[in-house]
Design a protein around this nucleic acid. Structure first.
Lengths: 311, 311
DNA sequence: GAGGCGGATGAAATTACTTTTCAGACGTGA
DNA sequence: TCACGTCTGAAAAGTAATTTCATCCGCCTC
């Protein structure tokens, strides 16, 4: 066996997951920031015209993207395939799927002069796409592990700042409803202070789209150092935060436009992940979760005006 | 460019027809009588397990069918492809098509014993459906009016409790980013206290799925009575809250299941409406919104660790 | 029934394509 | 400006696909 140093490292580190089937566009977007310029060109070309690229050989694709064969192969690897041959197969599969789905899916950017009707349609379309991408790109093994950790947790802390904090709160609200002990932290200082208390059997979750939000990484690191099980929900699984996360749940990254900040789609994606976590945990702890859920319903009943027959 | 000698001949002579897309099984049957024994074996194998064969090299398939590489290539040609390479691509495409068509996204309820893979798929599917429903059911006239009111608002108050409060916060975060003055209220008492200050030119927004959450209706009523423009985001446009709302934005109501409380889909729906409001307002106030947006980006830049070189 | 003929078949040679290697180019930070 | 690390593509090395060709088999003829 030869020492391919970095190549070997690249291959063994982020790709225990099987090659993606149809979540290719999503994967391209998630990984794009990791890539070098020429690799980005290749990835982009491939994502935008799977059918066309499937017809090309390495050399052809290299020419078309103005790069070299080596770069094409490198890109294929980064996307999770053993080599170009397999990427090409996946491309053909993807093209067929698209054609079959009959998805015209013209996802034009939202423009300043779009009518509100268009805005509604485009937004809905984009968020749907985002959900599909997230679902396709989610590593179920990691999810499984995260669910297991949460189900037996003594206590759960969730860190999130800004828009991600809302997601953190959402998760906490849900977990509380099924009888788990969970807290959401927005204040970085308090978060760290609390993280110090964490130990084995506790679970810490950090939510950050960029994977580089120090205010969120810090408490996760502390919890990690104290022996807690740590989970990261991020759009950049290769980001700095990965170093302190036992389990990483990847959210999809949509291209952002001027009017539509990234926060918007990352939120949709994060919420789906959070929902999956919740349902997973609820399933696992069904005996206790189900009664807790109905109890919380009943407790809220009197906060609604009694008028209007319901259901 | 080199002489492609016989390839050119082969291609132009017997194959004016383009390679078959997905009607492969049919082609196999039609052509079977023409074929020799070993070719039939290959064709049959290929037709019965496209996915499996797509993973094999010529040598692999030759072995599996107990024939030679040459036979495999010959069979490929007979089926209308330039060579095995292309048959393989078609096979991958076919497999993908079958897989896509075979799984028509069963929207069954999420059950306690569903695997996590199913949970992810079903959740994503449901939320996508929810988005589509919301978009379809949204009254653009009302949205238009709401956007107009918000764009010129002196001050904006948003009321929401529980899960809806997160939506309220989301909206407020966004509005603040484009330079509007907005507040989210969770505490019903404080909300009412603040609502008293509202007057013409101010906008109050209440978010409640049921349309019967008194803690949210109350402040909206007060704001309404004081002359503010009021907007309700609710799943029950006929609910009690309608009486105090100038504009009503209807969110979709998904059936809820035991494991999946209504809060989950209502949140998705509410967020879409909120996003539409935001984009609408951002469009209307583009001159001030755009610089404000980029300013808030820059302000956040230093909260991210500078690591990871990227382009 | 022997000989011969035409097509079918696979082993091996050839060619096309893919992957790896490596040295130079490029950008970056000191 | 220099040194260093990274990116990049040309070309070597390796692998898979295609072609060639000798053999073999079955069938027909005499």
């Amino acid at each position: 066996m030869k020492e391919t140093f970095k190549d070997a490292a690249v291959e063994t580190r982020p790709a225990p997951a099987p090659p993606a089937p149809a979540a290719l566009a999503a994967k391209v977007r998630t990984l794009a920031p990791t890539m070098t310029r020429s690799m980005q060109r290749v990835a982009e070309t491939v994502a935008s015209d799977p059918a066309g690229c499937a017809a090309l050989t390495v050399t052809g694709l290299a020419e078309r993207t103005g790069t070299s064969e080596a770069t094409v192969v490198r890109t294929s690897r980064l996307l999770g395939y053993p080599g170009y041959r397999d990427l090409r197969l996946a491309l053909a599969a993807l093209a067929a799927q698209q054609a079959a789905g009959g998805a015209p899916a013209v996802t034009a950017d939202i423009a300043v002069d779009d009518s509100l009707v268009d805005v509604v349609a485009k937004l809905a379309q984009e968020e749907q796409q985002c959900l599909a991408d997230t679902a396709a790109g989610l590593d179920v093994t990691q999810l499984e592990a995260a669910v297991a950790a949460l189900s037996g947790a003594r206590r759960i802390d969730v860190y999130g700042i800004g828009a991600s904090n809302l997601v953190a709160q959402d998760l906490v609200q849900k977990l509380l409803r099924i009888g788990l002990i969970a807290h959401a932290h927005a204040d970085p200082h308090l978060a760290v202070t609390n993280a110090v208390q964490m130990r084995t059997g506790d679970v810490a979750i950090a939510i950050t789209h960029s994977g580089r939000t120090t205010d969120v990484i810090e408490p996760l690191r502390v919890a990690f150092d104290h022996g807690a099980t740590t989970i990261a929900i991020t759009g950049r699984p290769d980001g700095e935060i990965a170093a302190y996360a036992d389990h990483i749940l990847t959210t999809s990254t949509a291209r952002e436009s001027e009017l539509r900040p990234a926060a918007m789609s990352s939120r949709t994606s994060q919420l789906l992940v959070v929902d999956c976590l919740f349902i997973g945990v609820a399933q696992r702890t069904y005996e206790t979760a189900a009664p807790a859920l109905s109890a919380s319903y009943e407790a809220l009943a009197h906060r609604h005006s009694p008028r209007s027959t319901q259901r």
